[in-house]
Computed example of a mutant assay.
Amino acid sequence: MSFPVRAITLDLDDTLWPFAPIGARIERVLDDWMRARSPATAAMFPVEAMRALRERVWRENPALAYDLSALRRLTLEIALRDSGGDLSLLDEAYEAFYAERNRVEFYPDALEALARIARRVPVAAVSNGNADLVRVGIDEHFTLQLHAREHGAAKPEASIFLAACERLGVPPGEVLHVGDHVEADVVGAMRAGLRGCWLHRDDHPGGLGAWPRADIAPDLVFDSLAGLADWLERNPAAPRL
């Protein structure tokens, strides 16, 4: 299949890198940090209890569902306060989390493929997460980054995809959104009028073997970002920057 692609919007977590190892490391790093800096908090909220607190904060604050940074800060604030910890440590605790959150391990194909794609078309990061492209070290490949927290709504809301298209200066029908999540990425983007590419790696955390919906299908499916880079280079409708 060949169609015009003048820009790409790209998911980050589980698209360029797996998130599960990051999440596991964050729990260990925060636990170590609390043991060193706020022992009472570590005692009241060991890893399992901190995880349960985080999940409760997520459930009880649906209005912040688009802002994972605010939810994380609120979790740390409650943990410090309820354990009698020093609330002045909140910024330092959040920084311990955020530094680890941005220490990613890329999928083997991701960096080279991203560079190849960015040489073809402008790329915008569109993410519900809170990764920082500068801290991760890949900002040079992106024209812009649009977080759900910045926009005020999360994927699959049409508005975040359309805002990215507007900032790119490209009509939605000529923008390809690429991501791993069936609903948040592919279905959301296609309902907003973008083209949709499902990046379905063999180790996808959702465990899906095949596209699960009959009412809507992605324009493209690849099991690696390199597959998309190859397609762009073969596609005569995709311009070269």
Rank of each mutant, 00 (worst) to 15 (best):
A113L: 05
R81F: 03
L111P: 03
Y94M: 13
P108F: 08
Y98I: 00
L114N: 06
G84T: 11
L89S: 09
R101L: 13
S88D: 15
E92K: 04
P108M: 09
F97K: 06
G84Y: 11
E95G: 06
R81G: 04
A110M: 09
E105A: 14
A110V: 01
Y94D: 10
N102F: 09
L89H: 09
D91A: 15
D86M: 07
R103M: 09
A110G: 07
D86E: 14
L89F: 05
G85N: 08
V104K: 10
A113K: 05
L89Y: 07
D91C: 01
Y94I: 01
R103F: 03
A93E: 08
D86W: 07
F106A: 10
A99M: 10
E92D: 15
E105M: 07
R116I: 00
G84V: 09
D91T: 04
P108H: 06
Y98W: 10
E92W: 00
D82W: 13
A93C: 04
A115F: 02
E95T: 11
Y107Q: 10
Y98M: 03
F106V: 03
E105Q: 14
V104W: 12
S88Q: 13
L89T: 03
A93H: 05
R101A: 05
L114W: 08
F97Y: 15
R116C: 01
E92I: 00
G85Y: 08
G85A: 08
L89M: 14
S88A: 15
A96P: 00
Y107L: 08
S83Y: 10
A79H: 08
D109G: 02
L80H: 02
R101N: 14
G84F: 11
E92M: 07
D91Y: 04
D109C: 02
A93I: 02
A79P: 00
A113P: 01
Y107W: 12
N102E: 12
A96S: 11
R81V: 01
L90M: 11
L87K: 02
E105T: 12
D91G: 09
E92S: 13
V104N: 10
L87T: 11
L114V: 01
A79W: 08
L111Y: 09
E100Y: 07
